[in-house]
Amino acid sequence: MAARESLEVDAGTLTTQRILGRVATYAALLFFSVLFLFPLVWMLTTSLKSIGEINTSQPVWFPSPPQWENYKIVTAKLNFWRYALNTVMLCVLTVTGTVLSCSLAAYGFSRIKWPGRDKLFIITLGTMMIPFPVLMVPLYALFKEFGWVGTFKPLWVPAFFASAYNIFLLRQFFMTIPQDLTDAAVVDGCSEFRIFWQMIIPLARSALMVVGLFCFMAVWNDFLGPLIYLSNENDFTLALGLQAFQSQHGGTDTNLLMAAGSVMVLPVIVLFFFTQKSFIEGISLTGLKL
C-alpha cells in the first residue's frame, strides 16, 4: 500500500496544476455524492417519521422524535426473518449457479476457438433483444409442465443454465487476458479445465464478483418472479412482502414503506461496503496481476 502511494507522489512535484486537479476531483466527487446520496437519506429520514410529519405540504427534514417503532412494525409485518431467509436462499443458489455456469460458458466463448462459436454467441446476444413480457406466458406453461409452479424452482434452477448478460460480461473480461499467459500453460500440458480453474478464474475475480453482485441484487429486489410463481405466504421474499405496505383505498403508510425499503437496502449496503475492496481492488493485491 505504502509503496504504491509513494509512487504516485513522486511522479511529479506539487505544482499548482496538480493541486487544482485535486481540488476539482474532490469537488466533483462531493457534488455527485450529494446528488446520489440525497434520495437515500430522504428514504431513511422518511422511514423515521410519523404519519403527521409525512402529511404536510412542507417537507420535514428531521423527524422528531424519530419513530423507531416503524421498524418494529415493519419487521413484524414483513415476517422479516422468514422472508429474509427465503430471499437469501434464492440469492445463494442463484449467485452460485450463475457464476459457475456463466464463467464456464464465457470461457468457451472467449478462449477456445471452435467452429460455430461466434454464431452461437450472436444467438446468445439475440436472446436479450426479445422483450421479456412475451416470454412469460410460454415460460409459465413450461414450468407448469415441469410441476414447478408453487415451488422455488422456477426462481433459481434456470440460473444454473447461465444467462446471456453475464456470459457476455465475463467474455469481455476473459478476452482482455493476454493469450500468451495461457499459451505457456498449454505447452506445459495443462488441461483446458485446469487453465480455466487455476488461471482464468483467479485473474477475472473482479469480474466474477461483479456478476455475483448484480445477480444477488437482481434476486434480492425481484418482485415479478416470486409474485408469479409463489402462492404460499411462508415462501414469500422481502421484495414481495413490500407490497403489504401499499393499499389502494386504505392509505399507503409511506413511512412504513420507506422503513421496509431501508430494511431491504441496509444489508446490501453493508455487504457492498465491506466486500467491494475485494472485488474492485482484489486483483492487484493478489500479485497475480502483471
Binding site: 410441476g147 415451488t151 424452482k153 402462492s231 393499499s247 389502494q248
Partner: peptide
Amino acid sequence: GMRGGRVATHTPDGRVIVEYWEKWAG
C-alpha cells in the same frame, strides 16, 4: 430450494383448503 411441489389440498385435521387470492393489500 428443492422443497415444495404440490401445495397441500387438505389441512392436517382434514379440512379442504380453499385458495383465495385478493387484490387488496395493506
